[in-house]
Design a protein around this nucleic acid. Structure first.
Length: 584
RNA sequence: GGUCCGGUAGUUCAAUCUGGUUAGAGCACCUGCCUGUCACGCAGGAAGUUGCGAGUUCGAUCCUCGUCCGGACCGCCA
């Protein structure tokens, strides 16, 4: 018996047809005489009926022995059900079986997914991922991921981009994340690095005249995981020659509009809003603001300098957020927010309530009438509420209030989960000073071109903290979705950047000689962007964690719980690689 | 590396704060009954190294310490 249809496609119109279905036993219901099997495959569920009046006992016995997750093939006739099941797409029909074979039995599964998603915790789901992926939810997530990839490929191909693969055995480069290293057998003591991104390869493809490149590329970064980060992840890597920032913006906007429409039938508004890095930090405290709700940060640093409240007067920066309708916050809840602020590095979380247009309680008694007026004016509350203050360094004030803002946005349900608020963050600084290492670092990566008006400052190595780069992030609902820049394409200028970052001539030659050399052979101006696929998929699927949209993700602590990797290897393998393991 | 939360039956949870007889429940599993269920129903049953190791105690699932595993956040992530 070979299947003629899948378990999700039979309808009323198929009434009377002879069919063969194969799939997994989703649920069995033995009524003593009649036996119902819900047969499931990737496409859906179809009810199979075994009627002892029509079937030999042997067939009934087989049906009766079926248990959850047995794999069976059934032949029979499509019939319209007396009462339709509105919960199933195939609910108007059933298949009246005339034969059944068990393709394979199953031991009792460790968990069930009758409601469409697995009813076990993540640890167990990851251990038995091949079962977890049978659920509706995971099947759908994988399908959406596929549609997104397909849409990206089709869109970019249509625009003249071609997909070119680049090596995953690459070279370790300084800066950035920790590399995953792969020992070389042929060159003992030497290592490949798995690429953190195909950055250098794609730039060299531009030198190679390949003009418009993309790749759905796996990237590797050996850093601690988060719910939106794991050591291997996927980027829609894009690079193009002879472009401006504006070209990349419109290409990317078009691509996202196409992806959202094709993969999820969602219409998004383009062009996207744009915010400068500075305004994002000022108003939202983060460089990836969630624009679905207001709750902007307000700055009272200037007036706070003269405050009688020493906590304000002594702080470099005093900012606040004013939240309507939280004036009845319990002491316990307040304590939780305060702990949260402390966890983020703050000394505490000052607050005052706003009742009837006046500050009330909390720190209000330390503030003069004039100060209170300034705060009330800036707060712009239309009803009673509460104000949270952060008085600290500017970085810390932003960090605390930015995080608190996001938390409150979620807790108070200040946004519509079906809304998609994209924005570009532009005018990033090129460099930031690393006080721990006492040197300058690049904000994005080392290959970013400054804005033209700052070229001379770079050459002169002056005002480094003021220099803005031609680099941009794409943010959606508070998630950094993509990052990109216009690149440096001149050898000498690139070398200048390396030097500013503190690299010696020898290091430059050793690490990037090949790249600087390549640029001498007519490198075209170029730029690009790299949207993170996992994050795009997780947002479209409504998932909190990218692990829900990766078929076989690593656990938080970077194990594969299914195969138990990483694991020790044979001594002989290490010997071939001239590697000895040192005791910890 | 740090802070916090969790780990009890196959699984999801309860009991732990306030140590004490036999560690409970839903789903799953097993047996029987049941001819229109569709998360079928009914009756019965089996199922536990309370993650692991030490300590305190007459007595530890419960308190303490260590350790392992999972998760959230900070650091980290050009």
């Amino acid at each position: 018996m070979k299947r003629t249809d899948n378990c999700g496609e039979l309808r009323k119109a198929d009434d009377g047809n002879k069919v063969v279905l194969s799939g997994w036993v989703h649920k069995y219901r033995n009524l003593g005489g009649l036996i119902f099997l819900d047969l499931r495959d990737r496409y859906g569920i179809t009810q199979i009926l075994f009627d002892p009046n029509d079937l030999p006992k042997a067939a009934i016995d087989i049906a009766n022995s079926c248990r959850n997750e047995f794999v069976v093939t059934v032949s029979g006739t499509v019939r319209i059900k007396p009462e339709p099941n509105k919960n199933l797409a195939t609910g108007e029909i059933e298949v009246v079986a005339d034969n059944i074979i068990i393709e394979n039995e199953s031991v009792t599964p460790p968990f069930n997914f009758l409601n469409g998603k697995s009813d076990a915790k993540e640890e167990v789901r990851l251990q038995y991922r091949y079962i977890d992926l049978r659920s509706d939810k995971m099947t759908n997530n994988l399908l959406i991921r596929h549609k997104i990839c397909l849409a990206a490929r089709n869109y970019l191909s249509e625009k003249g981009f071609i997909e070119i693969e680049t090596p995953t055995l690459a070279k370790s480069t300084p800066e950035g994340a920790r590399d995953y290293l792969v020992p070389s057998r042929i060159y003992p003591g030497n290592f490949f690095a798995l690429p953190q991104s195909p950055q250098i390869y794609k730039q060299l493809l531009m030198v190679a005249g390949q003009d418009k490149y993309f790749q759905i590329a796996r990237c590797y970064r050996d850093e601690d995981s988060r719910k939106d980060r794991q050591p291997e992840f996927t980027q829609i890597d894009i690079e193009q020659s002879f472009v401006t920032e504006e070209d990349i913006f419109s290409l990317t906007e078009g691509m996202f509009a196409y992806i959202f429409k094709q993969a999820a039938d969602i219409d998004i508004k383009i062009p996207f809003e744009r915010l400068t890095f500075k305004s994002a930090m000022d108003d939202y405290g983060v460089d990836k603001p969630d624009l679905r709700f207001g709750l902007k940060l307000k700055n009272i640093s200037v007036s706070a300098k003269n405050s009688g409240f020493s906590v304000f007067a002594n702080a470099e920066c005093v900012k606040f957020i004013a939240v309507e309708g939280l004036e009845n916050l319990s002491r316990k809840q307040m304590g939780e927010y305060e702990d949260y602020a402390k966890h983020l590095g703050g000394k505490g979380l000052a607050f005052t309530k706003v009742i009837g247009g006046k500050l009330d309680g909390g720190i209000s008694k330390f503030l003069s009438g004039e100060e209170q007026k300034i705060i009330i004016d800036k707060a712009e509350l239309s009803k009673d509420g509460i104000i949270f203050f952060a008085a600290d360094s500017e970085d810390l004030a932003n960090k605390i209030l930015g995080a608190l803002r996001n938390r409150l946005g979620g807790e108070l349900k200040l946004f519509d989960i079906n809304e998609y608020k994209f924005c570009w963050i532009v005018d990033f600084p090129m460099f930031e000073f690393n006080p721990d290492e006492n040197r300058w670092q690049t904000m994005h990566h080392m290959f970013t071109m400054p804005k033209p008006e700052y070229l001379q400052d770079v050459i002169n190595e002056v005002n480094l903290d003021k220099i803005l780069g031609q680099l941009y992030d794409l943010v959606l609902n508070g998630v950094e979705l993509a990052s990109g820049s216009i690149r440096i394409h001149k050898s000498e200028f690139q070398k200048k950047i390396f030097k500013i970052l503190g690299m010696t001539d020898a290091e430059i030659e050793n690490k990037f000689g090949f790249m600087l050399n390549a640029f001498k052979f007519g490198a075209p101006p170029h730029g690009g962007i790299a949207p993170g696929l996992d994050r795009i998929v997780s947002i479209i699927c409504g998932e909190e964690s990218i692990r829900e949209v990766i078929a076989f993700p690593k656990s938080k602590s970077q194990n594969c719980l299914m195969m138990n990797a990483p694991s020790e290897v044979d001594k002989s393998q290490l010997e071939e690689l001239f590697i000895e393991i040192r005791k910890k």
